[in-house]
Design a protein around this nucleic acid. Structure first.
Lengths: 212, 212
DNA sequence: AAAGTGAGCGAACATCCGTTCGGTGGAGTG
DNA sequence: CACTCCACCGAACGGATGTTCGCTCACTTT
């Protein structure tokens, strides 16, 4: 690949930084000032070079029409996932509020779509306590779920066990009118219970363990 | 909160959509056309309303200087974390390549800074196998680490156990010239070993368990 | 030495674009 | 009806912005 001149690298850095801070691209004169370049024409000249090298795309006839390419991070879609509450033994999952545009939820995690595989209506819960440690879910973990009332065999679901008064996260297998709930830790024993003792509350999408 | 008029809602939707597709905000005339509004002044009028209601911010004296607020997702910083390889029993962690600007790494995860707490030089590893199941790390998990050679007591670190030929992730406690490695699962027993048998390879930042 | 090339310079130009301004019409109010 | 308020309209103004043009300078090639 052809090397970038110092000025071109400067401009590229400036572009990225500017885009990070503001939400719109710089004008040529912004770049001129930011990179201490003497003339707008020099900026234009180098932008053309950058475009030739395929590092940016310019939308002519549009001011500030500069896109930085090859920038996976910029292109990624980001979603605010509401943290609806906590999940703990002895408590059912808080029901996802019916109106989706409920922006009252102050508590959100901002994630890339990679984290939730483009699922819709995903919500998150903080895990309190170690009651799901058999499922490799620790205290403080955040689990991402999508709303679900039913499950296919093998789905990882959050279920409410009526008799125990407990929510847990297990793989679900319907066997006759019994349900087998298989822990993620394969060395642990499954739970067998009657089908009407379990109430499915959501389907597991992914989970995240933050630094403590 | 005061309701939005139909036109204001249209404009707001258009703004978000435009920003999603292009990487720069629309001009007033773009909005005019996109929302089929008769005059630029009407767009201006409604943008002022939206600004009064705190839904957008406008940067005067800058064309296309429109930011959509209340949009935590837009503001979040995103980072491409390189996945340097796999972590498995019997293999040391691949060393983070010395030159950081090594963009040859094709394999990356795109995450928000929430996921790595703003740490620098973070890298990621895929977990192969269930050798770290005691640490609540499953096959297929992705762990985020920062480079480290030493550790403080209580740090969660990835260590190379020379005698076992194995990498594991445990809490680290130096006790005299022995090291206690405490699994995340508190019901499991710690490992005791001599200090020169362990080689610290990275400090745990966070981990992620994708949908399977 | 002459010619060529890449980078830079400053000024001027033509659009692009945000803003302003006078005006219209309908709804509500006394 | 007179008055006010709100949303809207079209045109025009002026600043912001991208682009072009002729020129210079340093360095390399012929």
């Amino acid at each position: 690949m052809s090397q970038l001149s110092g000025k071109q690298a400067d401009i590229l850095d400036f572009l990225k930084e500017f885009l990070q801070e503001k939400d719109y691209p710089p004008s040529i004169r912004d770049i001129q000032e930011g990179c201490r370049i003497s003339s707008t024409s020099v900026v234009d000249y180098n932008l053309r070079k950058l475009e030739e090298k395929g590092l940016i795309r310019r939308d002519r006839e549009v001011s500030r029409g500069i896109e930085v390419l090859g920038n996976k991070a910029r292109r990624a879609k980001i979603i605010d996932v509401p943290i609806l509450g906590s999940i703990a033994a002895g408590q059912p999952i808080p029901v996802p509020s019916s109106d989706r545009f409920n922006n009252d939820v102050e508590d959100t995690v901002t994630v890339t779509e990679d984290m939730i595989r483009g699922r819709q209506n995903v919500f998150a819960l903080r895990v309190k306590g170690t009651s799901m440690i058999d499922d490799l879910i620790d205290d403080g973990d955040i689990v991402f779920l999508e709303p679900a009332q039913a499950a296919q065999d093998g789905d990882r679901v959050a279920v409410w066990l009526k008799d125990r008064g407990e929510v847990t996260l297990k793989r679900y297998y319907l066997e006759g009118n019994r349900v087998r709930l298989q822990p993620a830790n394969s060395t642990m024993q499954p739970i067998y219970t009657s089908a009407d003792n379990v109430e499915i509350q959501g389907r597991f999408i992914s989970s995240f363990r933050p630094f403590d």
